[in-house]
């Protein structure tokens, strides 16, 4: 796979504040690359530098193998941007908005017409073509924002929190659409603070904080980087909390708590953890109901690596 974006030793200062500190990044062709980080971690600054919206102090940015600058219009032609804030003209209709943003890249009228139609179909806004943005709901507006960013069929798409304030149904449509764009050949750089979204669609993820790239890899690779095993939850209606200390002494147990008639046990890595816990309960005649076991989530990874809850930060 070819490298689509290569960022090397990027340094960006805002007066005394270092927004990006020798930041490195490599995005390969065909990836859906997730950029995760709390507020102020440098995600937007990174994207702005790559897009040529911001000057940087040091480092090198290459896109499609060429050095990126604000005047590299050939490179920009292959890039689509879906901003976090909906950026459309209130005075124009849905069709006119998509046509305008597509027209910034595509001069051929008939080709543009076809692309606009496809973008409208892609985001399922066919019934709203003649509506002005003020008449659209939040979800539809987000879809229009996406259509404006991708109508010209870019090879590289930056999506900065495209699902903020969107209802679950629209969010699923958008995520499915992103997957479709990717399967059609687009490389996508995706930022979100909805961890489950990133986990669902991203093929590789970078975790950023304080302008640095703390970890990078597939979600499995990231989960392997931290010293956490599965999380086990067992429904116990009548539990004597004196057993908690004994459970803590079991192999690989990281933490134990009993909340709302449920026993939660977190493990570090290891094998047969669940079997040993269930044996422990049976031996003490503790009756239990449902048992759940799940691998650590990206939330756990993020918390472990940055020491912060992503949602709280954002």
């Amino acid at each position: 796979m070819e490298t689509v974006i290569k960022v090397e030793n990027l340094l960006k200062r805002y007066n005394e504040l270092i927004a990006l500190d020798n930041f490195n990044l490599e995005v390969k062709e065909g990836e859906i690359f997730g950029l995760l980080g709390p507020n102020g971690s440098g995600k937007s600054t990174t994207i702005s530098c790559i897009l040529g919206l911001l000057k940087y102090d040091k480092g090198n940015i290459e896109v499609f193998g060429k050095k990126m600058s604000p005047y590299e219009y050939d490179i920009k032609r292959q890039i689509g941007v879906v901003m976090q804030n909906v950026a459309v003209f209130d005075e124009l209709t849905v069709y006119e908005n998509i046509d305008y943003f597509c027209g910034l890249y595509i001069k051929d009228r008939s080709l543009r017409k076809q692309y606009v139609k496809e973008a409208i179909d892609f985001v399922n806004l066919g019934d709203f073509e003649k509506f002005v943005p003020q008449k659209l709901s939040g979800g539809l507006l987000r879809r229009l924002n996406i259509a404006c960013g991708i109508a010209h069929k870019p090879k590289l798409i930056f999506m900065d929190e495209p699902t903020v304030a969107v209802d679950p149904q629209s969010r699923n449509n958008i995520l499915e659409g992103i997957k479709k764009l990717n399967s059609d050949g687009a490389t996508i750089v995706y930022t979100s603070h909805y961890m489950e979204e990133v986990e669902k669609i991203c093929t590789r993820i970078a975790i950023m904080d304080k302008g640095k790239n703390l970890a990078i890899g597939t979600k499995e690779e990231l989960k392997n980087m931290i010293n956490l095993g599965e999380n086990v939850s067992i429904e116990i209606l009548d539990f004597d909390e004196k057993y908690i200390q004994d459970i803590k002494k079991l192999p690989n147990v990281y933490s134990v708590e009993y909340v709302n008639k449920n026993l939660h046990v977190k493990y570090t890595k290891g094998q047969r953890n669940l079997i040993e816990l269930l044996d422990f309960l049976r031996e003490r005649n503790v009756e239990f109901g449902h048992v759940y076991s799940e691998l650590p989530t990206l939330d756990d990874v993020f918390l472990e690596i940055t020491g912060k809850e992503l949602r709280d930060g954002e």
Binding site: L51, G52, K76, I79, A87, L104, G149
Partner: peptide, 8 residues
């Protein structure tokens, strides 16, 4: 911003 990102 969006226009600046574009190829125009």
């Amino acid at each position: 911003k969006r226009i600046t990102c574009s190829s125009i």
